[in-house]
Design a protein around this nucleic acid. Sequence first.
DNA 1: GCATTTCCTTGACACAGATCAACCGAGCCG
DNA 2: CGGCTCGGTTGATCTGTGTCAAGGAAATGC
Lengths: 245, 245
Amino acid sequence: MTIPSITVDCGDCPIRHRAVCARCEADELSELDKIKYYRRFEAGQTIVWSGDQMEFVGSVVTGIATLTQSMEDGRTQMVGLLLPSDFVGRPGRNGAAYDVVATSDVVMCCFRKKPFERLMTETPHIAHRLLEMTLDELDAAREWMVVLGRKTAREKIASLLTILARRDASLAPDGPVGPLEFHLPLTREAMADYLGLTLETVSRQISALKKDGVIVLRGKRHVTVPDIGRLMDEAGDDADGGYLD
Amino acid sequence: MTIPSITVDCGDCPIRHRAVCARCEADELSELDKIKYYRRFEAGQTIVWSGDQMEFVGSVVTGIATLTQSMEDGRTQMVGLLLPSDFVGRPGRNGAAYDVVATSDVVMCCFRKKPFERLMTETPHIAHRLLEMTLDELDAAREWMVVLGRKTAREKIASLLTILARRDASLAPDGPVGPLEFHLPLTREAMADYLGLTLETVSRQISALKKDGVIVLRGKRHVTVPDIGRLMDEAGDDADGGYLD
DNA sequence: GCATTTCCTTGACACAGATCAACCGAGCCG
DNA sequence: CGGCTCGGTTGATCTGTGTCAAGGAAATGC
């Protein structure tokens, strides 16, 4: 539920990166440019396997990826959703802790890990940004723990839709005005994995929200939210995400 | 489920701090000592209210504290458990994001926030440690998301007991040898808040684990684990916490 | 065209965990 | 001592969500 607060214009990528990218600081421009490169992944492709070495860090430029963790018997829980501008990687760590999977076609703006880490240690400003970003992620993870531990299925769905709606709105140039519309970037099964539900329950609750007029569906993936306040009420959140800093 | 990996001997406190404390680096010794002080909190006392300014960061020296988040209707979810040596605070952030509550009497080794942040920006080593600690916490939070989203009540209890047992064992001088014993530092209600259950379910599952010989209780709070492997099986975890770095 | 696959919806039913309620034992206080 | 509170246990019952199953709609391939 973190709302992007620090964004920078990379100059190259068609998004505003959150936090770390070339051209964010004039000083580091040439250095970061030297170690920057792009990678493309196809929908369904696993970007990193849990436990593997990760040789890069970077940002999602386009597309959606997920962080998931699986139990031995196959139960899986998504622990993070990576939307455009989100950062991927564990600077200072060797192995990946989770599977990173491309849910749609994904383009990532990557930095080679070793040089990036060197740059990080030499550039307090970058280290500081990374700490901020990690604290944001920690906040988001803990916020999600409330969703997983205490919310009903309907509230869970509403919470997820609220995040996606706000995220889309914040990327739009003119901010959240009028009824929000967005494309659902996840299958029902992926939503279930994020919410700790089954796909059948997800489907039923979406149908229920539709029947009650909280959302309008065109096809199965295009969502219109006539009243974002109504949706947030359904999510059981405080009036506003509650962010402070 | 994070296993403490970096500990330092503070020289003053009767614990080995995780990560940041005076005397961890000779260079910063005098500086950190200047801004260090102790605070005592009574059981039940709220150390920080969500949203309030936090004027310190620090480590728990003795006692147990919890991080909790509440919904408007009173449902509460614990999002973190603070045991001796754990770090408290959000360097670089102003408001607290959660309630921090002392579950037992607590002594904290605190550093005044502003000077600590200054020191942090001037001392790459400290900044780097804080990033590592925050990544640890993020891993732990995400690990807990699997517990909340996908585990059964019995598995949840076993997961919590495993954490507490391992934490106690790692603090003991001779490591995990023979049957583990530890004091349950939480009420059934606090356990329920951590696990996304009701206190009745917690009580029932503990009784069931006791009946099945997975644990032995003396009184209501003293736990003996005859076979930690058995307990970990019950928790549904991979053979070992799965930590890599 | 038809077959196949993928994603989704809906129904019937089962069950894990919530809810409501009674009670126990220990500690504390007047 | 009696009365009270707090933390915990256990039983009876209810219910939200999981499970199992059937089938629909759209895309893809032959």
